[in-house]
Simulated scan of single mutants.
Amino acid sequence: MKTVLVVAAHSDDEVLGCGATIAKHVTEGDQVHLLVLTNGVSAREGANDTDIASRELALSNAAKTLGIHKVVQCDFPDNQLDSVALLDIVQCIENKTQGLSPDIIYTHNASDLNIDHQLTCRAVQTAFRPQPDCSVKTILTFEVLSSTEWQFTEQKFSANWFVDVSDFIEQKITAMQCYQYELRAFPHPRSVEGIKILANYHGMRIGVSYAEAFQVLRHLT
């Protein structure tokens, strides 16, 4: 059994980025933990306590759908992680994962358009820097539809690790539907059709029906 840690800036990123891979880990007997750094909605105009509670319920339901063992929700400001000292984010991750000893970590890609995603990646790399007593053998970064692909710069997400999730794509869709108010109508990328098209595209790249793609930051054998 492997211990898997997913660190996401916002609830729903875990589903969009690696939801089907999470479900596959659970089916294979691995234990998956999720750390979410912000409430995901407080930056929106008119957001209130009811919106925050609704988002927390969606997170809980999505986690149950995927089989996540434990969810920890932090309270950093949504879409304003650049207003927080990086050290504070790093120390929060270290404190919330103390004693966990993950083997594999999934998190955001540093070249993402969203500033919260960028800083989450930096904080994870710092919190789990490769010291002699670090348990982490693999760190993989994921893409988040309607964010990662909108970064039009030379530095972009470049997939070099693929997971066959053909048997888990519907479970991912069901989990994403827990965040119904985050879904959009096609051709918006954050739609049911968009999620399946991306997974189908990555699947074609490795000869399967559906796949999730990642960029390797660390892999020790």
Rank of each mutant, 00 (worst) to 15 (best):
V6L: 09
S42N: 09
E212P: 09
R218T: 08
N39D: 14
A175G: 07
T97L: 06
V216E: 00
I206Y: 00
A8L: 11
S147M: 06
C74W: 10
K64Y: 10
P132C: 02
G194K: 03
I22R: 00
L119M: 04
F76S: 01
H33E: 12
V71K: 10
Q80T: 08
I105G: 04
P102L: 13
V84Q: 01
C134N: 11
R55L: 06
A185V: 11
L35V: 15
N95A: 12
G194E: 02
D49Y: 02
N95V: 10
V7D: 00
A63L: 05
P189D: 05
Q91P: 10
L145A: 06
H33N: 10
T126S: 11
N39V: 14
L37E: 07
K96H: 13
S60A: 15
Y210G: 05
S209L: 14
T107P: 06
L37K: 01
S101T: 12
V41P: 03
D75Q: 14
N61F: 01
V36W: 13
V6H: 11
L59S: 15
T148F: 00
F186Q: 06
T65Q: 09
A199P: 09
A23R: 08
T174H: 06
Q73I: 14
L119E: 05
Q80H: 15
H108M: 01
T120H: 01
A23L: 10
A185W: 06
T120N: 08
V15W: 03
F128L: 08
L5F: 09
G99K: 08
Y179T: 03
N48F: 02
E14Y: 13
S42F: 02
F142Q: 11
Y106N: 11
R205N: 09
Y181T: 13
N48E: 02
S11K: 01
L119H: 07
C18L: 02
A123Q: 08
T21S: 02
D75T: 15
Q171D: 12
